[in-house]
Design a binder for these strands. Structure first.
Length: 502
RNA sequence: GGCCCCAUCGACUAGCGGUUAGGUCACCACCCUUUCAAGGUGGCGGCACGGGUUCGAAUCCCGUUGGGGUCACCA
């Protein structure tokens, strides 16, 4: 094991969308592998045919790649340890199962689900812990079932499962990278089903076989798997394999501290993508949910590369963490503030075009879709938006005429003279040769000074008429970007429309 | 209920025997300012409890409480 190349895996079942908890598990696996110059692999655990969802595999991988988590091996990328889909490895499991049977570490069980349930109820009624009663444990393995009975059932073609024979009263011990030593008593665990009656392996069996065959050095997975460790460890022992190192991650929690689940908010990564979160922010946020670099670091914003450089499993916490959107929102803003304008421009274009198709604009199309124009908008708005799409939706006045004027603003900023004042100011604006923020500012101040008025008397109404809102970026800069024509048109139109509040 | 895991501000966390218990988000106030943001300054707010060990415990040990996970022919 020493000196071996690190290999980690993310092994989702294709039953739906990628859960944010799954994203974090995948991320930690990825970060650890990359930090150690190793490989990160995706394996699909589709041993439950009934839960399989069409397209889920594709979706899982696409979403991970969106997040920047690119596998070195996967069903879609290939690799030397394939196939990477468990339903294509059935013959492998069958072989290993046969070995277990021969070594008397596993046995056939013909109990029906109804029988099992009945037994369970009975035990419950007697105040006992529900546990398989080992009815079909053969005589030669210490049970009470004669092998003739087993053979008889076999010959009649009765459906069966194969169970592992858990040794009585042995202590199973291992050292978790995150949690330290953990010990279990085998008497508390059941004779786990290894092979289901449909011929498919259970998770426990398939994952142990594959983890070994695919040569993973570290298994990093959610805490919900901690309690099945003894079963897995016993299997490694049966086969005489050296188990990999294990790290069980703390769970992601709902605000009420239960395991993060639907019905208490969004849990699918796609939900957050749809809302407009960037992979930068999501990855950064999720990485910090359970990990920090410690040593007095006060860094909050990490790129993927920085995470790779600094990640370590030893610094993953033990306690569950609540998925709190406030911090995510803040991170998203940090990234928007830092992101190069070209990138922002590029990413808002699609939103802009769909909006333009829907609404139509009075502004020159070539101008408002130009790099130059969009860059100005982005620079003016980047500290004021929470999501990239808000460059278009939240500040739509850069592209469309205001459809209404904020009522609160009107009430506060309008008086009987306002319309006349604006009408009088218009020619001054119109006379500006160069419609720059500096010129607009001087012009406005020179207009207002002799009247003994404050600049605010005209600043606020001007903002209201040109944007429809009482808030926004620096007025002079905003007007410059909008351009003389648009500004004059909007003011004129506004004066017509607005009647002075009584 | 059995087994297992966990426990520092509302949230994410630093802390690994001696700190005025630090940072970030959120919240509040002030400053900056034409508005809104951004930014700056400050504030609010925490070691679950009880026993030990120790000259000294947030830190080590035990217990209590609380929370979570898991007990499937699901993963």
């Amino acid at each position: 094991m020493a000196g071996q190349r690190v290999r980690t895996r993310f092994a989702p079942s294709p039953t739906g969308y990628l859960h944010v908890g799954g994203l974090r598990t995948a991320l930690y696996n990825y970060l650890f592998a990359k930090k150690m110059n190793g490989d990160f692999i995706i394996r699909i655990e589709d041993t439950d045919q009934s839960r399989k969802v069409e397209g889920a595999q594709r979706n899982l991988i696409t979403t991970l790649e969106w997040a920047g988590i690119i596998p070195d091996e996967s069903p879609e990328h290939g690799g030397n340890c394939g196939p990477y889909v468990q339903s294509e490895r059935l013959h492998i499991y069958a072989g290993y199962c046969q070995q277990l049977l021969e070594d008397r570490n596993a046995y056939y069980c013909f109990s029906t689900p109804e029988e099992l349930e009945e037994n369970r109820q009975l035990q419950l009624k007697q105040g006992l812990q529900p546990k398989y009663n080992r009815k079909w444990l053969p005589e030669e393995m210490g049970g009470s079932m004669p092998s003739s009975e087993v053979r008889k059932k076999m010959e009649t073609g009765s459906p069966y499962v194969i169970r592992m024979k858990v040794p009585d009263y042995v202590s199973v011990w291992f050292e978790d990278i995150i949690r330290g030593p953990i010990e279990f008593d085998s008497s508390t665990i059941d004779d786990q089903v290894l092979m289901k009656s449909d011929g498919f392996p259970t998770y426990h069996f398939a994952s142990v076989i594959d983890d070994h065959l695919m040569e993973f050095t570290h298994i990093i997975r959610g805490e919900e798997w901690l309690s099945s460790m003894p079963k897995h460890l016993l299997l490694y022992e049966f086969f005489g394999w050296e188990p990999p190192k294990f790290a069980h991650l703390p769970l992601l929690l709902n605000p009420d501290r239960s395991k993060l689940s639907k019905r208490q908010g969004d849990v699918a990564v796609e939900d957050y993508i749809r809302k407009g979160y960037s992979s930068d922010a999501i990855v950064n946020f999720v990485a910090l949910l359970g990990w920090n670099e410690g040593e007095g670091s006060e860094k909050e914003v990490y790129s993927m590369q920085e995470l790779i450089d600094r990640f370590s499993l030893e610094r993953v916490g033990k306690a569950g963490a609540i998925f709190n959107v406030d911090k995510l929102n803040w991170l998203e803003k940090q990234y928007i503030k830092e992101r190069p304008a070209e990138k922002l421009v590029q990413s808002i274009r699609p939103t802009l075009h769909t909006e333009l198709e829907k609404r139509g604009t009075m502004m020159p199309l070539e101008r408002i879709t130009s790099d130059e124009y969009l860059t100005s908008v982005v620079e003016l708005m980047r500290e004021r938006v929470g999501f990239e799409h808000e460059f278009v939706t939240f500040s739509s006045y850069f592209f469309f005429e205001p459809e209404s004027y904020e009522e609160e603003g009107l009430k506060k900023r309008w008086n009987a003279d306002t319309n006349d004042l604006l009408r009088e100011f218009l020619p001054y604006l119109e006379s500006l040769e160069v419609f720059s923020s500096e010129n607009i500012e001087t012009c406005l101040k020179e207009f207002v000074a002799p009247k003994g008025l404050k600049a605010a008397a005209i600043i606020h109404p001007l903002r209201l008429l040109t944007s429809g809102f009482s808030f926004g970026p620096s007025l002079y800069h905003m007007l410059e970007v909008l351009g003389k024509e648009t500004v004059i048109r909007r003011v004129l139109h506004g004066i017509e429309k607005i009647t002075v509040p009584a």
